[in-house]
Nucleic acid binder design. Structure first.
Lengths: 247, 247
DNA sequence: TAGTGGTCTAGACCACATG
DNA sequence: ATGTGGTCTAGACCACTAT
């Protein structure tokens, strides 16, 4: 029995379905309905919020457009799990010898606490010089290095990562952040550019000097929009491929 | 006074609002309602098609999601004009000396009729060896070359382009296609990769040998989905920049 | 003031998934 | 058989734009 919207301090100037959308989105963010789980049916929401069913549907359609939930005819409405750790496939074509796409293996090459540079601190909304964890990570397909990553995390928020061996980090970091630090990545912004490879990176990636690399800078955000992680990923430009449809 | 859907040979297995969407989309494609023009109001559509107003709204919402029309409260629903000739800004940062973004100037360097290669003919859905117009075009900002383009067009469909001086082509090709050949580009697919520059291209773009270029391959389609033009655009990788938001 | 799209309601019926 | 989302209807009222 959820109470009607009036008691939730919603902005009454907004359309009802928007207020409802905000309230539902809040419950998803607050993990009251967990990712992958079924959320209440249209009929339940209709009676608990005391609105017409059409209004419920408009609110849910908005959530679908934002990618927060998914509907399945006859089954119900499900909270979507954020899963974009493999978003690199958007930009790169990594294939193993048998032509399969797979999540690259990961190795943490270095882990250290450093003072945030001006750029990193502004990206993560920290004070300049605040302590950040820097991870240097290599990603491999068929044991060949394909991506080199520099990752920066607020040291206080993620200090749990300093207290475990880097070998236990596994191939995906975001589930680790969630398990060890209670930090959930909900969205991200990426910027893609092309540079000449530096000698150090060339060495890591086993590339000839002065070849080109594609650089993906990603700022990962929590569900409240707070920046959690900033990273740069570099991979050989020759493996790069991206397609769009425009109109 | 449009007649109800039954008389339009619509697929009755589809939901009503989908059938309506298809019919409306057809009228837009057939230019019965022209780009930029007002289309009939919800009330008019409701009575001419004999459906409920909610059904009309759902059909129009679908058209909005596809980017075919735009609604403006109090004014009406308008057919959207396709305008993505400047879509290169999506991928490149071209700025003139004063920091302004502007449509690059164009020069046609070469125009000739050639037999379509296997690749071009399959992209344009022509027989292999069919005659195609090949344009070599250079785009300039502040008189500096920034993009080199190879453009391929079906020679029969676009033969009007052979009968006018290339100096009169102007800076934008799609309006030219529309004026001179009656061919309207409605959408496009682009694929982006990175290559080393060829000697010929390096010369055109005034780049050092072996530097990297970003290559954008674009297939431009008519409103009926027929491929009209295939082009490759190459520009210095150093000017390249692209950003996305993911979730 | 008239016409447009935007919101909201209330309910009927259908199609899909599951036990 | 039951519950879910999907379609469709019919109409009231509001907010914006133009004249």
């Amino acid at each position: 029995m959820t109470s009607p919207l009036k008691q939730h301090g919603a902005d009454e100037r907004l359309p009802l379905y928007q207020q409802l959308r905000d309230d539902l989105a809040g419950k998803i963010r607050a993990q009251i309905w967990q990712p992958g789980q079924l959320m209440p049916s249209e009929t339940e929401l209709k009676s608990s919020y005391q609105v017409a069913i059409g209004t419920v549907r408009k609110a849910i359609e908005a959530l679908i457009a934002e990618g927060l939930v998914e509907r399945s005819h006859g089954k119900g409405t499900f909270v979507r799990k954020a899963s974009f750790d493999n978003s690199l496939f958007r930009f790169f074509r990594f294939e193993s010898a048998d032509g399969q796409r797979q999540v690259p293996r990961s190795t943490i090459v270095r882990r250290q606490v450093v003072k945030a540079t001006a750029y990193v601190s502004s990206a993560l909304q920290l004070d300049t010089g605040a302590p950040v964890i820097e991870l240097l990570r290599l990603r491999l397909v068929d044991k060949q290095p394909v991506l080199a990553e520099n990752i920066y995390l607020c040291a206080t928020r993620f200090h749990a990562l300093l207290e475990m061996p880097t070998d236990d980090f596994g191939d995906l970091l975001y589930p680790l952040y969630e398990r060890q630090c209670g930090q959930i990545v909900a969205s991200a912004k990426e910027v893609l550019t092309i540079e000449a490879v530096t000698p150090a990176q060339a060495d890591l990636l086993k590339l000839a000097p002065n070849t080109s690399v594609a650089v993906i800078e990603r700022l990962a955000l929590g569900s409240d929009g707070m920046p959690l992680e900033w990273r740069q990923s570099r991979g050989a430009a020759s493996k790069f491929r991206y397609s769009v449809e425009i109109r």
